[in-house]
């Protein structure tokens, strides 16, 4: 368990709240669809804060305008990767934005071992910091 007040990874929009139910996730998806965003699903077993590229579970669903369809994909992803981190991301292609507009975690492993902070001490009291995931130090298939 991680030592921050939530005991877990706090990335995403809603990590400080109780886990969202499927009905609550659907409401968020609908909000994004009303805004014209495209939803996509990503998963990983290496949630390092600088690990930008989680694995894509299929392509972003640009043409899908129905929350139920996104939920179907999410269920399939959860079945395939039950102990991975899974996040839903909404993409806004408006000129001048062209970036992610929403992102929240919808699946996480039961045990979240967190990260080690490695300090490399240098001259003048300078310290170089490295954040390393405990789980990521094991081979890919054995992390969670």
């Amino acid at each position: 368990m991680m030592s921050n007040p939530t005991g877990r990874l706090t990335q995403g929009q809603f990590s400080f709240l109780p886990d969202l139910s499927d009905a609550e996730i659907s409401l968020q998806i609908e909000y994004g669809l009303r805004k014209g965003y495209a939803w996509s699903i990503e998963y990983t077993d290496d949630p390092h804060p600088r690990n930008t590229y989680w694995e894509m579970y299929g392509m972003p669903m640009f043409d899908l305008r129905d929350a139920a369809g996104v939920m179907l994909e999410l269920h399939a992803c959860r079945q395939a990767f039950p102990r991975h981190y899974i996040r839903l991301m909404a993409f806004d292609s408006t000129r001048g934005v062209e970036s992610i507009a929403m992102s929240f975690i919808v699946n996480r492993p039961e045990q979240e071992p967190g990260f080690q902070l490695v300090r490399q001490e240098g001259a003048r009291r300078d310290i170089r910091y490295t954040v390393a995931g405990y789980a990521a130090q094991r081979p890919e298939s054995q992390r969670y």
Binding site: N4, L9, T10, Q11, H48, P49, R50, F115, V131
Partner: peptide, 18 residues
């Protein structure tokens, strides 16, 4: 700067966030 960055990096490790 040195003490602040210690705090920043340590907080990043215990939360997994930038």
């Amino acid at each position: 700067f040195l003490y602040v960055m210690e705090g920043v990096n340590k907080a990043s490790a215990v939360t997994g966030e930038v």
